[in-house]
């Protein structure tokens, strides 16, 4: 702590606090999390509903964006999970739109990044995990468990591989959620640290330059992480609905 004079609090931006007084956070309390989740909903409605209200054959700009997102996720679901997976497209689209909106809204200065919280990403990942597992069991029955039994491996290796497969299956929600929250939290914290350095005149040009550069990087990260989260969801979904695996 050589720079004792600096007031750098990179983690402050992640504090969950009630918006209307009180310091006790009940599950129903209206907090900054609630606010930014609500803003994400409004942003999605603005783009996907109000932006497409023209229903034009020749789309407006906002309608083009909505169509591109639709086409992008729709073809991703179809390519990764096959034709059977298309009926789960609305769920995947919901996840993608939420993560994308939350990531991008989090880049607005002074905003709150809901997807930087493990509670949020773990919930998302567990929804996917349990959803896919139940779906697989319902659709395939006990045959779903055959994915742990690697039939292409030598018989002697199969029990070992089965243990590894089971472990990797249950680790999925962990990696799925920590990847998203970790990426966003780290990036935002780094921006905050550099922003704190900007209070010293000598290094402020460097610090502001670094903030700009990292901001650009974070913009990329926000989109890429939404993409990664979605395509992993599709890959997991494929186990439940696809016919070929491993």
């Amino acid at each position: 702590m050589a720079e004792g004079g600096f007031a750098i609090h990179p983690m402050d931006q992640f504090v969950v606090k009630p918006l209307f007084g009180g310091d006790h956070v009940e599950f129903y309390t209206f907090t900054n999390v609630t606010l930014w989740l609500g803003i994400a909903v409004l942003a999605i409605i603005a783009l996907m509903v109000i932006g497409t209200r023209g229903r034009a054959i020749i789309p407006s700009r906002s309608q083009s964006i909505a169509e591109v997102l639709y086409g992008f996720i729709h073809s991703m679901v179809e390519d990764v999970t096959g034709h059977e997976g298309v009926k789960y497209f609305p769920y995947v689209m919901t996840l993608f739109m939420f993560v994308l909106a939350a990531n991008l809204l989090g880049l607005i200065p002074m905003s709150f990044t809901t997807t930087s919280h493990v509670a949020v990403t773990v919930t998302l990942a567990l929804l996917v995990f349990f959803g896919v597992t139940l779906l697989g069991l319902v659709r395939k029955g006990p045959a779903f468990l055959a994915m742990f039994w690697v039939s292409s491996a030598p018989l002697a290796l199969r029990p070992v591989l089965a243990i590894i497969e089971v472990i990797s299956y249950f680790v999925r929600p962990v990696s799925h959620s920590i990847r998203l929250a970790g990426n966003l939290m780290a990036g935002h914290a780094v921006i905050k640290v550099f922003a704190g350095f900007a209070s010293m005149a000598v290094i402020s040009p460097v610090a502001i330059g670094a903030v700009s550069a990292i901001y650009a990087l974070e913009l990329l990260v926000a989109v890429v992480q939404a993409y990664v989260f979605t395509i992993l969801t599709c890959v997991y979904l494929k186990d439940a609905v696809g016919d070929a695996h491993h």
Binding site: Y28, T34, V41
Partner: peptide, 14 residues
């Protein structure tokens, strides 16, 4: 709190 509001959000978006 976060999980509750997240579930509400996801339900609305869906």
């Amino acid at each position: 709190n976060q999980i509750f509001w997240l579930l509400v959000t996801l339900a609305v978006i869906y």
